[in-house]
Design a protein around this nucleic acid. Structure first.
Lengths: 242, 242
DNA sequence: CGGCAAGTTGAGCCAGGTCAACTCCGGTGG
DNA sequence: CCACCGGAGTTGACCTGGCTCAACTTGCCG
């Protein structure tokens, strides 16, 4: 599975870190703070130190979508993203980002192989998650999307105290915007999971996975219950792709 | 806007290309051919030479999703994608891919700066498109998604004969799987766009954009018609993010 | 203990999914 | 040349998951 890379800044050799710091700056954001086009054109490369950021777009009539969450260790590289206009990079909690000068960043990427591989790996990870997320959004039902998100959340949690304790690091509204649903629906789905005995909530934003296999099955769109599974896949379906 | 990079293979210096070729191979695929987990673990890095490939996932009950299209010039790097199991890389048309040895690929990335930047840029482009796509899937209606796709399609078309002639390079079903809707709905939306005078179809898979601004407005979720736009935005809405 | 933001619950409705029938088209063989 | 076939796309009628709107509860902070 995806392994959280160490923080970018911590990985560089000393001299490079200095030259990097020379032209970059750490900035602290409060929830709701938004970096828009102007800033991002000057600083299109950021490293997330702490907190959660989101890339969001706003439709003309106010519909809001969060296309991705950025978490500590992520390198945000928006140089190929000419939009940044309708929408922006928004902090969803208190957050620290390290603004990197693209020029210095490029220089480091060119000569420090370790840094380069780290960044590449992070980028691939973002890509992978984006694809998974697209698959979730496209065809899954609300409950399935939420189940899927819980796993995503668990996999990304760096603190990762115990394997089946999960903390949602964002508000319901943000979660809804990320999953392409309404906060009301998110709420109903949480209740359904809890009533089905799949999770048990502790406080508002954290809970425990009681029945992980069942949750996995829900996330994968498998509507069978545990009891229906006894005969271990007698009919092995073969899918014709294309 | 996003500019299609040249083909990977064409950009490398001669010696590197040779060393690359030494451990890689071009493979020709027919529509429906599918590269699954096994192959992808050995060859997780591919360059698309021609044709269209798709990354797809299958839910347990048969629901299929295409999370992304890969087109000529794209570098497919699935090393951070441990799934590849439920789903796979499927050719949507006749296609040629160049299988790259990860080891050689890494070596080239480490020492050839031009190649490295090319690959990085392509990866960022994929990321950007994935984010846009997620935004489309999450909150847009069917018609808006289709309009959005038409622009994506136009922007990526390397042949790009004329700016407002568009060719859809995939079947309806695949388009539906990509946009998270049913082929029937895609069909209905095409009709709606045509009846509204926004596009004019020539043959089944290609058409002409008649009213690009209107199409843009639809894609952006702006339901006003051209006539309602006369007063140029008198009320400038300010969105509060977060 | 007020006051506000966040989250939850309920009732009604509609965009788009589903299913089934039909059309259109390119290829194949008699 | 036409008859036939199968895959692809389209159309219509019906139904439902989740959006909407409004009211209510909970939690947090001074």
């Amino acid at each position: 599975m995806y392994v959280e890379p160490d923080r970018f800044c911590a990985k560089l050799s000393c001299g490079e870190l200095v030259s990097l710091s020379g032209k970059s700056a750490v900035e602290t954001l409060r929830r709701g703070d938004c970096l828009l086009g102007g800033v991002l054109r000057v600083w299109p490369v950021l490293a997330v130190i702490s907190g959660v950021l989101s890339l969001q777009s706003i439709l003309h009539d106010g519909r809001k979508t969060i296309s991705t969450f950025f978490m500590p260790g992520d390198i945000i590289d928006l140089r190929e993203s000419p939009h940044a206009i309708r929408g922006g990079l928004v902090a969803l909690s208190r957050a620290e980002v390290c603004k990197l000068s693209p020029k210095v960043f490029e220089a480091i990427m060119a000569k420090n192989v370790a840094a380069q591989q780290l960044v590449m790996s992070n980028l691939r990870g973002q890509n992978f998650r984006a694809h998974e997320h697209a698959a979730d959004l496209a065809k899954k039902q609300a409950l399935e999307k939420l189940a899927s998100f819980i796993f995503e959340c668990r996999n990304r949690d760096t603190v990762g105290v115990q394997r089946n304790r999960v903390r949602i690091p964002v508000r319901r509204v943000d979660l809804a915007d990320y999953l392409g649903m309404q906060p009301e629906t998110v709420s109903r789905c949480f209740r359904e999971l809890e009533e089905g005995g799949t999770i048990r909530r502790t406080d508002l934003n954290s809970f425990q996975i009681v029945d992980a296999p069942a949750l996995r099955r829900i996330a994968d769109g498998d509507r069978r219950t545990a009891s229906e599974l006894r005969p271990p896949e007698p009919d092995l379906k073969v899918y014709r792709f294309g």
